[in-house]
Each structure stands twice: as C-alpha cells, then as structure tokens.
C-alpha cells in the first residue's frame, strides 16, 4: 500500500467526517440544549436537499440557490419548532421519539406528494465537476475539497459562535443547566427557537452540499441520521467539539476500515471466508467503535452536561 493511497484515504476520511459533522452539529445543539431527541433532523436535511435541487434548477445557479435553500429550510425549521416541537420539550424522551418518528413518516409522504417518487437531480457546479491534482499521482475531486473547506469553515464558525458570542454563552448555559439559566433570566423560549433555526440551516447546508454527491430522494435523511446520532453519542451530546471529534473519528475509522480491511482479510484468510468477513466487519466498524467508546466513557468523549 503506497503512501499516496494512504494519504488519499485519509483525505477521504476527513471529508466523510466533515460531511457527517455538518449534520451532527445541528443535531447535537438541539439535543444538548433542549434535551430533545429529534429524529426528524434527517427530514430537514432531506427538505434542504430538495429545496436546493428545485432552486438550482429554477435559478440555474448553484451559488444563488444555496443561500435561498438554507434560509427557506431555516424558516421551515423555525415554524416547525414554534408550532409543534415546542410542545415536546417538557415531555419525556419516549414521547419525543414517537412524535418525531411520526414526523419522519409525514415528511417523507409530503415530499413525495410534492416532488414525486423519482429521485431529483442536483448537479455539481461545472467548475467543480472534475478532479484536481494535489500532488503528483494524487488527484482529488474538487467538489470534495469544497466539502472539506466548508466543513472546516462551519466548524470554526460554530466554535467562534459558541465560545465567543453572547448567544453562544447562553447556549452553553442552557446546555449545562437549563433550570439555572432560566432562573438567571435567559429567555429560553427564544433561545430554543434560534438554536433550532440554526440547526435547520445546518441541515439544509448539509443537504445542499451533499446533494451533488448523493442521491436526492425520499428517505435520504434516515440513512445518514443514524450515522449522525452515532457521531454525537461518541462525541458527547451537546458538545460541538465532541461532534467534530466524533465525526472525524467515525469518518476515519469507517473509511480506513472500508479501504483496507477487505484487503487485509484477503491476505490472511482463505478467500471464501475473506469475501464475506472483510466487508461484513467493515460495515459494523463504526457501531463497534461506538460501543467501545461508550464502554470506556459512558457519557461520550466530551460530556457537555456538568
């Protein structure tokens, strides 16, 4: 295995991790601050991607459509929070799971009614459609570089938002002790709406950015939602830093496992076992990782709640 290949695979791991981070960041904020399990997070991701695909086709421009889709999804998220989810904050986790599970079913059907059952097209912007040469012998898809760039930028922005701004301070206060924050006069209701809106916008950003790489179709949110949950659980719920570390860990372990485990098994095992075992193990690797992390650190790597 050459150094170049290892480097490329690490880049892939980074990219996949940042992809997951975009989704996990919003989830961990909502989850950590409102103590609310929102399974419908994936539905907002789907909505973001569909709106992006529609707007990109209507305007003919990726760059114009992106902010529009993000704002539109943000508004939808805020409306959803004010009309429905707000009622669930005081309920137990079970009720939240059930209600947002119901929302997934409803969202999937509504999207199908509006856009039809066939997958949507969301093309890569023409400038970014091919690979670029990073090193001799290492060419990398330019669009994936964009994903890496945006992922890092969002991570930095969120870090700044949470640690350096007043809203961020309130968010941290809310996450570590909600009752105390309320008692100190924080307008929790408005804070929650704002946080949920930010979460929805991050969903839309993720959906819009991943649309050119992944199929934009009904139910696209659920597959990736589970991965996002794994990420925030590994990282520690409510912690942006945890979400980033968790996302990168999951991205790396999954990518490296998929890339090298099957080959490794082919080296050491007879082919009939290796063919099944290698990919089989690679596909459960992240769940194994999560079980191991929780075994040693039952609160995740960076527990936010004090």
């Amino acid at each position: 295995m050459s150094g170049i290949l290892l480097l490329e695979q690490s880049l892939n791991g980074l990219q996949f991790g940042l992809m997951l981070f975009l989704l996990a960041a919003g989830l961990t904020l909502v989850f950590g601050i409102m103590d609310m399990i929102n399974l419908a997070h994936g539905s907002l991701y789907m909505l973001g991607a569909y709106l992006m695909a529609t707007l990109a086709q209507a305007t003919g421009s990726f760059l114009v459509a992106l902010p529009l889709a993000i704002v539109a999804t943000g508004i939808l998220g805020v409306l959803l929070e004010m009309s429905l989810l707000r009622k669930l904050y005081q309920r137990d986790h079970l009720a939240q799971v059930l209600a947002t599970f119901a929302l997934i079913l409803i969202a999937n059907e509504v999207v199908r009614m509006i856009w039809g059952a066939q997958p949507m097209m969301l093309a890569t912007p023409a400038v970014l459609s091919g690979p670029v040469d990073l090193l001799p012998g290492l060419s990398y898809p330019s669009y994936r570089l964009l994903v890496i760039g945006v992922g890092l930028a969002v991570a930095a922005l969120l870090y700044w938002l949470v640690t350096r701004t007043r809203t961020g301070m309130l968010v941290r206060a809310g996450a570590s002790n909600r009752e105390m924050a309320t008692a100190m006069g924080v307008n929790i209701k408005r804070l929650f709406t704002i946080v949920f809106g930010i979460g929805a916008m991050l969903c839309a950003l993720a959906g819009a950015l991943l649309g050119p790489l992944l199929a934009v179709q009904v139910g696209m949110g659920e597959e990736i939602l589970i991965l996002a949950f794994v990420v925030i659980v590994i990282g520690g719920i409510g912690s942006i830093r945890g979400a980033l570390v968790g996302a990168l860990l999951v991205g790396m372990v999954d990518t490296i496992g998929r890339a090298f485990l099957p080959a490794l098994f082919r080296e050491f095992l007879p082919p009939q076992y290796a063919a099944g075992l290698g990919p089989g193990l690679a596909s459960i690797l992240i769940y194994l990782l999560m079980a191991l992390v929780l075994f040693w650190k039952p609160q995740g790597l960076f527990p936010a709640r004090g």
């Binding site: 892939n12 996949f16 994936r144 597959e223 490296i256 998929r258 099957p262 063919a275 990919p279």
Partner: peptide, 20 residues
C-alpha cells in the same frame, strides 16, 4: 472483486482503491 455495505452512501474509499 469488492463488496460494500448495502445502502452505503459515500464511495470515496472504494474509488481510491479502484484508481490505485
């Protein structure tokens, strides 16, 4: 002859192996 997880989303790792 390579197999991946059913329902896999991202193929970057496999594509890199393929290129190599």
């Amino acid at each position: 002859e390579a197999y991946v997880k059913l329902g896999q989303l991202d193929f970057a790792a496999e594509l890199a192996q393929m290129r190599a």
